[in-house]
Simulated assay, not measured.
Amino acid sequence: MSDNIKHVAVKALAWDLAADIHLPPGFDENTTYPAIVAVHPIGSCKEQTAGNVYGSALAAEGFVVIAFDASFQGESGGQPRSIEDPVYRSQDISYVIDHLVTLPYVDADRIGVIGVCGGGGYSINAALTDRRIKAVGSVTGVNFGRLMHESFSGYDPIGALDAIAEQRTAEARGGERKVTQYLPASPDAAKEQGLTEIDLSEATDYYRTDRGEKPGGRTEGLFSRQGSAIGWDAFHRAEVLLTRPLCVVVGDKPGAFGAYRDGLEIYRRAASKDKELVVAEGFSHYDLYDQPEPVKIALSRLVPFYKKHL
């Protein structure tokens, strides 16, 4: 795994994005390299799975990998904090590519993207319209719009939108902000609440323990800004627009967040002539975040995929 990391600021809409560039072994600034943008999960940060697992592993294989904090999250700018807006999240990827193409050691014609969980959905969505992306990898990717339209809104999207509108009006008038906590405070709290569903319990184990917890990771979202997610679809027009090579990695132990379902859907719908579906048998959504065996399965296909297409 690469530990040669350069911290940079990336210009976004009206603020900077904080990013880590993972450089390959024996890095030579006078050489040009293929580059990969690593996109973190919902409520995560650049130092977690997208950066410290997949980003560092791909850098060790000879790629320049840039992992960044989403707007309004981690060390990146943007106010108010803790906004999880899919439109901004997908646009952030293009701003990061804007930065990459200015670097003399990056080959602008060999840029790919990889995303984990919600980052997988955002990576796919960005590739629909940003043709600078030449290859797309999704690891246990989730379509956050589908998730918000369904279970995260209690299967009542109109009711949720009405509540969001009321809350946003209250905040505009100076009222207190309402922040949704995606997870219990600890694994013990999850047990006390009777939360045994696999994705929820394993997410808590990852984000609320030393296993994956990082200062920049905030598993929360500003409720008043969740409306755009309910009306958003990561895979919109994928049958026509998603023509880039695609590698979709899922575990076959499905959970409430729906990565298995979403992975099979985008594999079916994508217009890509070169697409791969990798099923890590016996493993779950959060196993693919950092557990050695499923991560090895994922990388065994992702590394040659990117080497072929970048």
Rank of each mutant, 00 (worst) to 15 (best):
R89K: 13
L302G: 02
Q193H: 04
K273W: 01
G26N: 12
G194L: 11
N52R: 15
L302N: 06
Y105W: 07
D16R: 01
A270N: 06
H99T: 02
R301L: 04
D130C: 01
K253V: 14
D199R: 05
S71C: 01
Y286A: 02
R244F: 02
V8E: 09
K46Q: 08
A67C: 14
E265C: 06
N30S: 15
E197C: 01
R132L: 06
A60T: 11
H309P: 09
E202H: 02
A19E: 04
D20C: 03
P24I: 02
D290W: 05
A238Q: 05
T196R: 08
T129Y: 08
V53Q: 04
L277S: 12
T140D: 09
D210R: 10
Y122L: 00
I5K: 13
E197T: 08
A19G: 08
Y267P: 01
R81T: 08
D28M: 08
G51A: 04
G141E: 13
A190S: 14
G231A: 11
Y207S: 03
T243H: 01
R211M: 13
D199S: 11
V142H: 04
L100H: 08
E84K: 01
C117V: 09
A19P: 03
D20Y: 11
I66F: 04
P157T: 04
G121T: 12
E197I: 01
G251E: 11
V278R: 08
G62P: 07
V250E: 07
V116M: 02
Q73Y: 00
L302E: 07
D130F: 03
D233N: 15
